[in-house]
Amino acid sequence: MKALDPTPSTPTDEFIKGLWRENPVFVQVLGMCPVLAVTNSAINAIAMGLATTFVMLMSNTLVSSLRHFIPKQVRIATYILIIATFVTIVDYAIEAISLDLHKALGAFISLIVVNCLILGRAEAFASKHSVGYAMLDGLGMGVGFTLALLCLGGVREILGNGSLFGVALFPAGFEPWVVMILPGGGFFTLAGWLLLINHLQRRRQQASAGMQEVAR
């Protein structure tokens, strides 16, 4: 985890690192339980992504604010307490906003508590950096996580249901690939995205190496 956290350069860099270079799903491969489980539709993916973003932003902020007050012997217990509090708050908020969405996300809202991504950022980053940087890290990682979930949810809903955000995309004759909205479809889609992103990153590295070769 430490290797993924270079010395903070600029606030912008702290924010955007979570979007691509250190994307929590496609690069760090963290928090796979909700990634695979609730991305059977785009709206579920966005809701879970935003809920996780809120919890990560708030827990990073509080952990960073209290980092000099928390002894290292009890830090993990304290971080879990803080994360569980914000998850409970998110649980109430989603139930107030939409009962159907709350029902669709089901037990996975409560399971945000055990998302290793959130505890990982609290331990590896927020507890060692100032509040401003911790907030930017939480927000960046959260947005990156949400985008990754949306990538999966969008593909799965289009192929598995023939729609996007509930809007039908294909004519009536379209036969949905039901497997894509079943648990197996989550693995297939994630594998496809990882393949694509690794391919792009390899090409980028090769291009960069080629440029350096030419420069010599």
């Binding site: 002894p71 304290t78 307490l81 509090t85």
Partner: peptide, 27 residues
């Protein structure tokens, strides 16, 4: 350690109660 756990526990409890009271009528 007591100070951190009890203090943060109380803060978290207050936050939850506040949000629960605010969202209960809507829920």
């Amino acid at each position: 350690m007591y100070r951190a756990l009890v203090g943060i526990g109380m803060l978290c409890g207050l936050l939850i109660v506040f949000v629960y009271a605010g969202t209960r009528p809507v829920i």
